[in-house]
């Protein structure tokens, strides 16, 4: 079901960009706006927040995009429904937004760990345009770990998977801090879904180090049966990382240790962003995946428009 060919085909280059809106003006929202700005197939039609003085709205205004402090109300009141709405608020709010967006023919891309939508991990779920109208990006730790967890589970008999992520305090906003339980539950659920391993655990650390620590995720696994060959583990993991780098270039395996039946794969993600500091790879990888989903949806809309030839 993977892939890489699909990912390569995502940026078709078009003169008919999809109209997208960003809901939420924190660091995630701002980075989304900057990534939409870089995209050839997405047009930022609205950035909506709650606080008229927020840095996120000012940033979007500076780039010349329409902004509103009306939150979800502004999204719903738009004269024409958006093709895609990114929800960069928090898990509790997303449940409400999901309901409010029900009447619209809009793809809702969820950056919160609400567990509402169809889960997407680009290199694992493939680039077939998602059928669901609510697509969930799981969590930063999920995006960083699942490609590796999935690759390990396909090549070895994995009995247990544990994912430990460390995010710099500087970039962990209020929604992240309030949503720790949702982060843990949603990430564990997604690891089980995509690896087939029932016994999973997700852990999130917030590092206060100064200067801030680069986003890191370690995938620990217990391999049942034969002791895994360290060369094979390294090769399998390196291949998964190469796939992820196609859309998140800062994704790097920094160590891959095999000790008896235990495997530990350490990953760091540097942000490739116009607005985020380098250490904020957690936001970069989830946003890059979200943008990919939106671009793929845009490509599908374009394909649909081309096949219905007007006479």
């Amino acid at each position: 079901m993977t892939t890489s060919e699909d990912i390569a085909a995502v940026r078709p280059g078009t003169s008919m960009p999809a109209a997208v809106a960003v809901l939420g003006t924190g660091a995630i929202g701002q980075d989304l706006v900057s990534k939409i700005h870089r995209s050839g197939v997405l047009d930022c039609a609205l950035v909506a927040g709650r606080n008229p003085d927020s840095a996120g709205l000012r940033y979007a205004s500076r780039l010349g995009y329409p902004v509103s402090a009306g939150g979800i109300g502004a999204i719903i009141a738009a004269p024409r429904p958006f093709d895609v709405v990114f929800d960069a608020t928090n898990a509790m709010s997303h449940i409400e937004h999901h309901e409010l967006m029900r009447p619209f023919d809009t793809l809702l891309v969820d950056l919160t760990p609400s567990r509402m939508g169809q889960m997407v991990v680009p290199t694992v779920t493939g680039m077939h345009a998602p059928a669901a109208r609510d697509v969930g990006l799981i969590s930063c730790g999920g995006q960083a770990s699942i490609p590796v967890a999935h690759a390990l589970a396909r090549n070895f008999e994995v009995a247990y998977i544990e994912v430990v992520s460390t995010v710099a305090s500087e970039i962990a906003g209020r929604a992240t801090r309030l949503n720790l339980d949702e982060y843990v539950r949603t990430t564990q659920h997604a690891i089980t879904t995509f690896s087939g391993v029932l016994d999973t655990k997700a852990i999130l650390n917030i590092s206060p180090a100064v200067p801030p620590a680069t986003f890191r995720t370690t995938v620990h696994a217990i391999i049942a049966g034969d002791e895994p060959d360290s060369g094979l583990v390294a090769a399998v993991v390196a291949d998964a990382a190469t796939q992820v780098r196609r859309f998140a270039p800062g994704y790097e395996v920094i160590d891959c240790a095999v000790n008896g039946d235990q495997v530990a794969v350490c990953i760091e993600v540097m942000a490739d962003s116009d607005v985020l500091p380098g250490y904020a790879g957690n936001l970069d990888i989830i946003n890059s995946a979200a943008i990919l989903v939106a671009e793929q949806h845009a490509a599908r809309l374009l394909f649909a428009a081309r096949t219905v030839v007007p006479r």
């Binding site: 430990v164 370690t218 620990h220 390196a238 920094i254 160590d255 891959c256 350490c266």
Partner: peptide
């Protein structure tokens, strides 16, 4: 020096890898 906090035990793997010059070889 890296201001490791409780719970960041996986940093030990990375630091050991780096101090022994192993970092990067796996990728």
């Amino acid at each position: 020096r890296r201001q490791a906090i409780a719970g960041q035990e996986d940093l030990i793997i990375g630091v050991a890898a780096e101090l022994s010059g192993r970092r990067g070889n796996a990728a």
